[in-house]
C-alpha cells in the first residue's frame, strides 16, 4: 500500500496528571474518509487540537505528506495543508459570509501589505480571483445569495456549513470536521452527509470526521477509530467496529454491571 497522507503515531498528551490522549495512532490515505468516534470527553477534540498545533504533543509524531508537523504553530500547519472546523462554531461573527471565506483564501495569496496599500495591478487581479474563488465555494454550500450578510446572523445550520466552506478556502489536503452535524435535525443531517461526500470528491480532500451520529458515520465512512478516555479501543471498518465488545462497553457500560 502507498504512503499514508496523514500519518499519526504514538501521540500522547497529559494535562497535569490527567491523561487526555494516550498513544494515539492513525493512518489516513489520500482520498479516504475516516471517522473518530467515542463518548463525550473521550479526547476527540483534543486529538484535533494536537493535529492542528493548538496543543503541543508531549510524545508522538504527526506527519502530513511525509513532513513532520510537531511543534509547528497552528498557522504553519494550516499552510502545510490541514484545515479544520470547530465544534463550538468559531466564525468571524462581525464579518460577512463572503469575508469569512476570503480570509481563508488569503492563505494562498501572494500579494503583501505594500502591494495592498498601493493597489498594484497584480493585487487587484488577485483580489478579484479570491472573490471569485470564495463565491464559487459559497455556491457549492448554497450560501452564495447570503454572501453579504454578517455571519453571526446566519441560522445555525448555515453557520456549520460556512465553517466547512471556510476551511476549504485554505485549499487543504486534509480536512478535519469536528461534529459538523451537531445540533442539526434529521433532514439537515442527511443533506450534510451528502454534502460531505460531494465535497470529498469535488475538492479531492481527505477527511477526518468527529461525529456522534452513528448512522451518519456508518453510512459515509470507510474506517472508524473509536477512543475512550484518550485510548484507542477499536479501529476498522464500520461493520467490524459495530460488533466490537469494547466499543459496546464504552458506549453502554460494562455488561457485568447488571447488579449495581
Amino acid at each position: 500500500m502507498s504512503e499514508p497522507l496523514l500519518d499519526v503515531s504514538g501521540l500522547s498528551l497529559a494535562f497535569g496528571g490527567l491523561k487526555a490522549v494516550t498513544d494515539f495512532s492513525l493512518k489516513l490515505h489520500k482520498g479516504e474518509l475516516q471517522a473518530l468516534i467515542g463518548p463525550n470527553g473521550a479526547g476527540k477534540t483534543t486529538i484535533f487540537n494536537l493535529l492542528t498545533g493548538v496543543y503541543r504533543p508531549q510524545q508522538g509524531e504527526v506527519r502530513l505528506g511525509g513532513r513532520l508537523l510537531n511543534g509547528l504553530p497552528t498557522h504553519k500547519i494550516a499552510a502545510s495543508g490541514m484545515a479544520r472546523t470547530f465544534q463550538n462554531i468559531r466564525l468571524f461573527g462581525d464579518l460577512t459570509v463572503l469575508d469569512n471565506v476570503r480570509i481563508a483564501c488569503h492563505l494562498r495569496a501572494r500579494a503583501g501589505l505594500f502591494s495592498a496599500l498601493l493597489r498594484t495591478p497584480a493585487h487587484v487581479a488577485e483580489e478579484a480571483a479570491i472573490r471569485e474563488k470564495a463565491m464559487a465555494l459559497l455556491e457549492v454550500f448554497s450560501l452564495a445569495d447570503r454572501h453579504a450578510e454578517l455571519s453571526r446572523n446566519l441560522p445555525y445550520g448555515d453557520q456549520r456549513r460556512l465553517e466547512i466552506a471556510r476551511a476549504l478556502g485554505t485549499e487543504p489536503k486534509v480536512l478535519l470536521l469536528d461534529e459538523p452535524a451537531a445540533g442539526m435535525n434529521p433532514q439537515e443531517k442527511v443533506a450534510l452527509s451528502e454534502l460531505i461526500t460531494l465535497v470529498r470528491h469535488r475538492f479531492g480532500v481527505t477527511v477526518l470526521l468527529i461525529e456522534h451520529d452513528m448512522a451518519l458515520v456508518m453510512k459515509i465512512c470507510e474506517r472508524i477509530t473509536v477512543i475512550d478516555h484518550g485510548v484507542t479501543i477499536a479501529s476498522g471498518s464500520p461493520l467490524e467496529v459495530q460488533g466490537n465488545p469494547a466499543v459496546i462497553e464504552a458506549y453502554l457500560g460494562a455488561p457485568s454491571a447488571e447488579g449495581h
Binding site: 498557522h75 479544520r84 468559531r90 466564525l91 480570509i103
Partner: peptide, 11 residues
C-alpha cells in the same frame, strides 16, 4: 474576530 479560528485558517 476570533484568534483561534484565524490561526487555523493560516493567519
Amino acid at each position: 474576530e476570533n484568534e483561534i479560528a484565524a490561526s487555523a485558517m493560516g493567519i
